[in-house]
């Protein structure tokens, strides 16, 4: 009797664990089908992509799609632009949002909450309608077709301010007060004490900003003219022709394009979870 129970206790969790993993793997696989479809299509010859009934694999491995994707537009240049712009945007977002987040959470001034509510409110206006006024402003600045126009309007983010504020609210005041008594000013305590503590929420903001900048299409489309500052999504959409889409080429370009942003996610996801946890967005 006793022995059976022990056996049960030893084996049951293992079986359960295995079952868990099997079911999860199957689910993950099903979940990945659209994604696999993209990669498989990127390897089909162009003329076979739209054949009905759908065949899972093409008649041969069409690596020329990747070559076409690479030469269709200046892929290297666009890739560099995407990375560069996403990094700069993240940097701007991190610097300005942590500063304003600090002001909104830890400094006391009148009208603070009203101003903050205004910030939040702008999140609710769809981009499609502010994009033309913004375009006109960029024209005035002479920023048309420049990196600056791709970085700054996106970098000053209300979402970032919101995120940093939520996190900074959770840092106990005593920590800063102690420093203040030691003669630290607000600036010093911000740099020396607050920022180091905010590492993971900064990482969170960095990931969100990076991915958003990476995927962004409408604004880059409108604000760029030459190939100098264009980004990958614009390149991917180039396969959308007037007379039909080069699907295998598009899928190839898309398959390459996800690598950098997925890498950023993988590298920083540890901080992401931690960051969300600490911002209070994730619970407490």
């Amino acid at each position: 009797m006793n022995e059976i129970k022990t056996n049960r206790q030893t084996y049951k969790p293992i079986i359960k664990k295995a079952a868990n993993h099997i079911v999860l793997t199957v689910l993950a696989f099903i979940f990945l089908i659209p994604f696999l479809g993209m990669v498989i299509t990127s390897l089909k010859p162009e003329t076979e992509v739209l054949l009905l009934p759908i065949r899972i694999f093409g008649s041969r491995l069409a690596m020329e799609n990747y070559q076409r994707a690479w030469t269709f537009f200046p892929f290297g240049q666009f890739l560099f632009n995407s990375v560069f712009i996403a990094l700069c945007t993240s940097l701007v977002a991190v610097i300005t949002s942590s500063m304003s987040g600090y002001a909104f959470s830890r400094l006391h001034f009148r009208g603070r909450d009203l101003l903050f509510t205004m910030y939040l409110g702008t999140l609710m206006i769809p981009q499609q309608v502010t994009v033309i006024p913004l375009f006109i402003i960029m024209r005035r600045f002479g920023w048309y077709d420049t990196y600056a126009a791709m970085v700054f309007p996106v970098g000053f983010t209300a979402f970032g301010t919101f995120l940093m504020r939520q996190f900074l609210l959770t840092i106990p005041y005593e920590i800063e007060d102690a420093a203040r008594i030691d003669g630290c000013g607000a600036v010093e305590s911000f740099i020396r004490i607050i920022l180091p503590m905010a590492k993971s929420s900064i990482a969170t903001l960095l990931i969100f900003t990076f991915i958003n900048s990476w995927k962004s299409f409408l604004w880059p489309l409108i604000i760029t003219g030459s190939d100098r500052v264009k980004t990958l999504p614009l390149g991917i959409y180039m396969f959308n022709g007037q007379y039909g889409t080069d699907w295998s080429g598009l899928m190839s370009a898309a398959s390459i394009a996800i690598i950098p942003s997925f890498l950023v996610f993988i590298l920083f996801q540890k901080y992401l979870v931690k960051g969300i946890t600490m911002t209070g967005l994730g619970g407490r």
Partner: peptide, 18 residues
């Protein structure tokens, strides 16, 4: 976790077609 996050970084113009 990474698998389920993957669609977030994938261009929707590609996965939309699939």
């Amino acid at each position: 976790r990474s698998v389920f996050f993957l669609p977030q970084v994938t261009p929707i113009v590609a996965t939309g077609m699939i």
